[in-house]
């Protein structure tokens, strides 16, 4: 049978494409770009929260935050490994990230100004990520889908620890409650931007939906996130900073306002509050680690020679 027809039949039948199967070049390229961008987001995403590890208010909170940041590293590694099954080179992807040629989620270009941000990131940012990622557990490319299943299981811890942290702060002093509200005000709109531009402006959606590497449109997922989050905010006792936000009984969904898309495109274009800082930090970590990579390789080479002799 014609290879392309066989590929399309596999995807349409909701079966998985595996690494050694024939696939169209466009499918491979789009997947590498999408998975790498996701991997980069996990790796860069370690920075805003890592910022608070040394200042977490108790040993318990510190241990939780460390575990969470370590998870983000693990998620990045699952995803980089998935890109390699498509023929991507790990070193090249890192190079593309630190030279700014590949992107990561715009959300990580905002600074974490208060400790409440740790909770709000877990609740809203990881909550939005879960909305995006759960449908990808059924994506057509096998290694990607399997990585997403692992990631989603772990994200659930991230979201719950964030919400619990905020509940604790909300039951504290007025100053603590104000700190949570201020943090929600800053993160709400960037969280809505995480789903990408409105469907009408999203160039990749149609083909990606056909290939089953995207399962819902940006606007569908954004709606789902808002509907999920409103009762959580009510329970928490915070106000989501959108005057247009209200329940629409006819639609059976919440109506809500649009984020500032000009800001979104500015941040995507590299002009967000911390774009330069994030990349500089990642580049420095990579360069500072060079001697460790070289030493480990030299150690392995030395032992390979010895064992070869023996």
């Amino acid at each position: 049978m014609d290879l392309e027809a066989q590929f399309e039949r596999t995807v349409a039948a909701e079966q998985r494409v595996e690494p050694r199967d024939w696939m169209p070049d466009g499918y491979r390229k789009t997947l590498i770009r999408q998975i790498a961008q996701h991997a980069h987001s996990e790796i860069i995403g370690m920075q805003p929260e890592g910022n608070w590890i040394s200042r977490a208010p108790s040993l318990r909170r510190k241990a939780i935050l460390l575990a969470k940041v370590q998870d983000e590293a693990g998620h990045g590694l699952y995803l980089y490994a998935a890109t390699e099954t498509l023929g991507a080179d790990r070193g090249e992807l890192t190079e593309k990230l630190i030279s700014g040629r590949q992107k990561y989620s715009s959300i990580f270009n905002y600074p974490t100004l208060s400790y409440a941000d740790v909770g709000v990131i877990g609740w809203l940012v990881d909550g939005a990520a879960i909305c995006n990622q759960v449908p990808l557990c059924r994506t057509s490319y096998g290694p990607y889908a399997r990585a997403m299943i692992r990631i989603c299981k772990e994200e659930s811890f991230h979201q719950r620890q964030g919400y619990e942290l905020l509940m604790t702060m909300m039951s504290g002093t007025d100053a603590q409650r104000a700190m949570v509200q201020e943090s929600v005000n800053r993160w709400w709109w960037p969280s809505l931007m995480m789903f990408g531009p409105p469907d009408a402006e999203s160039s990749n959606t149609e083909q990606s939906m056909k290939w089953r590497i995207k399962r819902n449109t940006n606007d569908e997922l954004r709606q789902k996130f808002v509907d999920m989050t409103v009762p959580q905010a009510r329970k928490l006792g915070v106000t989501l900073p959108d005057p247009e936000l209200r329940w629409n009984p006819e639609r059976g969904h919440h109506d809500f306002g649009q984020p500032d898309w000009d800001e979104f495109w500015q941040v995507v274009g590299g002009n967000g509050p911390t774009n330069a800082q994030r990349i500089a930090h990642r580049r420095k970590a990579h360069e500072d680690g060079e001697w460790v990579r070289a030493a480990a390789a030299a150690h392995a080479a030395k032992h390979a020679v010895r064992e070869g002799v023996a």
Binding site: A81, R293, A296, A297, H299, A300, H303, A304
Partner: peptide, 11 residues
């Protein structure tokens, strides 16, 4: 379960 890079088997 997946793959990874390492300089030798122990690592």
């Amino acid at each position: 379960v997946g793959s990874l890079h390492a300089p030798d088997a122990e690592m």
